[in-house]
Computed example of a mutant assay.
Amino acid sequence: MINRKTLAKNPKVMLAGSVNSSLVTLKRMIKHDLNVTGVLGLRPEYAKNVSGYQNLEEISVRNGLPYVGFKNINDAEVAAFIRRDPPDLLFVVGLSQMVQQEVLNIPAYGCIGFHPTCLPKGRGRGAVAWLILGKAEGAATFFLLDEGMDSGPILVQEPFAVTKEDYASDVIVKICAAIETALDRLFPLLKKGVAKFDPQNDELATYLGRRRPEDGYIDWNRSAEDIHTLIRASARPLPGAFTYVGGTKMVIERAAILENCNWIGVPGRIVMKDSSGTVVQAGQGHVLVQEFTGVREHELSVGTSLGIDFPHQFEIITKLLRTST
């Protein structure tokens, strides 16, 4: 069932955000000449751990839009900024913070959230990585925020496909393109004062758990396909898939599955090198490491083992414990 709401024509809108999708949304608002009465952006000093951070202040000032930076969307000064000229709709796009009810209640018609999966499937955190890992389908989805997790009725949804060659940065480009298409459909309706809300079917909902940087650790006993997928899902602007060379962390930025390799080795061990990269034995198949950071090329010689040598580490710890008693 679709619920239709009649808004004021050319309704007042605000945007709160912090990343690429936020910037794309703001640019589309400006292009469609929406009645933007304010922009709220995460301040740079609080964006250290925000992948794909974008400072919205410059474009706001350049276009004569009132701007305020914040640490937390629920701070009192943020609520005061929104209340000074309450919008009809507040778009919260590309912000991992949960918006509390006090802020949700300020806009006349509510807050509009964004999520890059085909809701109701794929609610939750870390969507870019989970999309590459094949745990959800991609879509630029704008929906009415409620007290649940990505559970409100949908205004517009524009699907996009994720391939087995896409890295995180490729998926972000696709997300931004889908956002543009979705908003080109939505904004002309909003300017006419029309909004259609399609309730989600909670029975179809799936949830994506939070991912942490340590989830990018490479287990070389996995198949080459699994390792390649993890590398793509963890790549920039995300923290990266990583292994160790001795005690030094090595982040693998780009790799490929090497077909028809006639070398056989121990998983995690370098079996050959050539001009195309470094070939590492996986549990099944081979991974061609093409781009990496953290170590130098000469440290990756044939026969070098990547990862944590647990038997060797256990032996060292055992010796240390014996000498200390």
Rank of each mutant, 00 (worst) to 15 (best):
F114A: 04
A241E: 04
T325L: 14
V68L: 15
H228Y: 12
N20P: 04
E259V: 00
W130E: 04
G17A: 06
D226C: 05
P153I: 05
E45Q: 15
P107M: 14
Y207H: 09
A224W: 04
P66N: 13
S234D: 03
Q284M: 05
R236G: 02
Q100M: 07
W263C: 11
K9H: 08
T6G: 02
G193R: 04
I59H: 03
I132F: 09
I175M: 14
V287D: 04
D198I: 10
E297H: 11
H312W: 01
V287R: 04
L321G: 15
Q313C: 07
L23D: 08
V302L: 07
A233G: 03
V24D: 07
N49C: 09
R269H: 00
K71Y: 07
V19F: 07
M250I: 01
E225D: 01
N221A: 03
T206W: 00
F91C: 06
L89I: 06
A140M: 05
K196I: 07
Q100K: 15
Q101A: 12
I175T: 12
V302C: 08
G294Q: 05
T117P: 12
V162I: 04
I154S: 06
R62K: 15
A256Q: 14
Y109A: 12
K174I: 06
R296C: 08
N63H: 12
L34D: 06
G193E: 07
R211E: 11
V92P: 08
Q157K: 13
N63G: 06
D88R: 10
H298A: 10
I308W: 00
E225H: 00
A168G: 12
K273Q: 13
V287Q: 02
Q157I: 04
V251F: 04
E45I: 11
A108Y: 02
P44H: 03
L145Q: 07
K164S: 15
S18G: 13
K164D: 15
V289F: 06
K164L: 14
N72H: 11
T229F: 03
F160N: 10
W263M: 12
G17W: 06
K192E: 15
S305K: 12
I316D: 07
Q290W: 00
R83F: 05
A76I: 08
L7F: 01
E225A: 13
A177R: 14
L89E: 03
I132G: 05
Y207D: 03
I82Y: 02
P267A: 00
F310A: 03
G285W: 06
L189R: 15
S301W: 01
L300I: 07
G126W: 01
S21A: 13
G303F: 08
V245T: 01
A233L: 03
E57N: 03
G268K: 05
Q281Y: 02
E180C: 07
D150H: 09
T117R: 10
A178N: 10
E77L: 06
K319S: 12
G209F: 01
V266F: 00
Q313K: 08
N201R: 13
E165P: 06
A178E: 05
Q200R: 14
T6M: 11
D226H: 09
V162E: 01
V173D: 05
V61W: 01
A241F: 03
F292D: 04
S22E: 09
A256M: 11
